[in-house]
């Protein structure tokens, strides 16, 4: 599903990733942890094709990121759902329109869109707020809209870069629960986080980075379907 083989990533100011090798299987849940600047976001950006590796090979869902053509980038993105700390919603479109938009860009049939949109909004628990604009929603609700948008094209991988970073504890718990449910449905999840409480609550695989290298990997999928420690 996702495979990093001896990946290096240099920014003009220095190296962000040094010799990272990593394999993430279909349906797996993986936490990326590490101090600020360790390279978590860089790994995720490589996954969704925002960056190209300086050296080494990155393969995601059959695409080789190193030589991804402009034509293939949208095709890769449609197989992924990506959520961020800052939600990245369009403030002048309703929740519903934000989600529908992600479907429209894929050229989906117009008459199939509304039902699918309502289905994912229901899944994230926001059906009642479908016609609200993002500024009218709480942080947790906005993140749910973003997750709904990520889900609407049935991704095989959900990429989440500190999805709970801007949320209070209650909202964090709700959003995290939602992400676990998505994973339980068979979607692989790669989630970067600073929140070690979240990490400790579960027995999901954890990969820790330091200065661009993997310093700890709890190993392949120890229990992605466990609900232990949730409450």
């Amino acid at each position: 599903m996702i495979r990093f083989a001896s990946v290096y990533k240099d920014y003009p100011k220095g190296a962000a990733l040094k010799n990272v090798s990593l394999h993430i299987a279909k349906g797996e849940f993986v936490f990326l942890t590490g101090h600020s600047g360790a390279g978590k976001s860089t790994i995720l950006k490589l996954v969704y094709g925002e960056l190209r590796p300086t050296a080494g090979d990155v393969r995601v869902s059959g695409f080789s990121i190193g030589d991804l053509s402009p034509h293939d980038l949208p095709r890769l993105r449609r197989r992924l759902g990506v959520v961020f700390q800052d939600f990245r919603l369009l403030d002048d479109r309703t929740a519903e329109e934000n989600v529908a938009f992600a479907m429209e860009v894929t050229g989906a049939r117009a008459d199939s869109i509304p039902a699918k949109v309502m289905r994912v909004l229901t899944q994230v628990g926001l059906a009642a707020k479908a016609s609200a604009y993002p500024p009218e929603l709480s942080g947790g609700e906005q993140q749910r809209v973003a997750i709904a948008r990520a889900l609407v094209n049935d991704p095989t991988i959900l990429v989440a870069d500190e999805p709970t970073g801007n949320l209070d504890e209650r909202a964090t718990r709700g959003v995290f629960q939602l992400i676990r449910e998505i994973n339980a449905g068979g979607t692989a999840v790669v989630m970067a986080t600073h929140d070690l409480d979240l990490v400790r609550q579960t027995t999901y695989r954890t990969v820790e980075l330091r200065e661009g290298g993997v310093v700890f990997d709890s190993g392949v999928d120890e229990g992605s379907d466990t609900t232990e420690g949730l409450e």
């Binding site: 993105r77 369009l90 860009v105 050229g107």
Partner: peptide
């Protein structure tokens, strides 16, 4: 620009 980056994120082609 922000809107364009979001469009790309969700898989819009350049033509779109």
């Amino acid at each position: 620009a922000r809107e364009i980056s979001i469009m790309r994120l969700v898989g819009a082609t350049n033509g779109f």
